[in-house]
Amino acid sequence: MTQDAYNFAYLDEETKRMVRRAILKALAVPGYQVPFASREMPMPYGWGTGGVQVSAAVMTPEDRFKVIDQGADDTTNAVSIRKFFERTAGVATTTRTEEASVIQTRHRIPETPLREGQILVYQVPIPEPLRFLEPRESETRKMHALQEYGLMHVKLYEDISRHGHIATAYAYPVKVEGRYVMDPSPIPKFDNPKLGRSAAIQLFGAGREQRIYALPPFSAAESLDFEDHPFDPSKADHPCALCGSEDSYLDEVITDDAGGRIFVCSDTDYCETRQARGYRGKDAA
């Protein structure tokens, strides 16, 4: 089978129009989960089928595409999706955040601030932030419609009562433009401050659950908290061992069988760019 056998970006034009309509609605009602007719994709659920459909729908031949998985451009999932679009859309790809026009991500927001004109596409496993405590979809939709969000705070209350602090460390819920409570996908809470007032368009696609939602540029996304337990976007208290960055999100990497470990930037592009500019951490080669 050749590349010519596919329509541009795999999906047929009618499907892309359908997805775009859902995206436009999602942008018009920030934080609201818009149902869409999610298609079967040539990859299993959980591998980013929602994100891929959103990327396919917004992609143009002129775009430059980047995919990250937990911040890294070189993991299986990221490589597969990048190749998928190279083959089905023939678009240029990149690992540089600054160069990319469409970035599909799983579980991170790039450290490099996004700019106007960029689109960040999130892969979302569970779009419903209320599901943890209210399993009935009919009820959660009503709760969103009526802004009954007390339950979100019950979850945070439970955290504090059990751990002494809000222990939710990822998929930390935000309130969008003072209206809808939204699950930002399983990004670390460290990334939450980057959600709000971003210059880029942020789109969220959940393939299995058939939902799309969005944060338009410069919209507010406030992390939920208590007055006496304010939101704290904490991270591991180390500098990156490779680039020395003090303020990027770090992965813990086990280096040997003797319990040796180092902390390195989870955003590989950010880390490499810094190293190229001469920044060095204590374990840099």
Partner: peptide, 8 residues
């Protein structure tokens, strides 16, 4: 919390 209490 449903009626707006936000002080743990």
């Amino acid at each position: 919390m449903a009626v707006g209490a936000r002080h743990y």
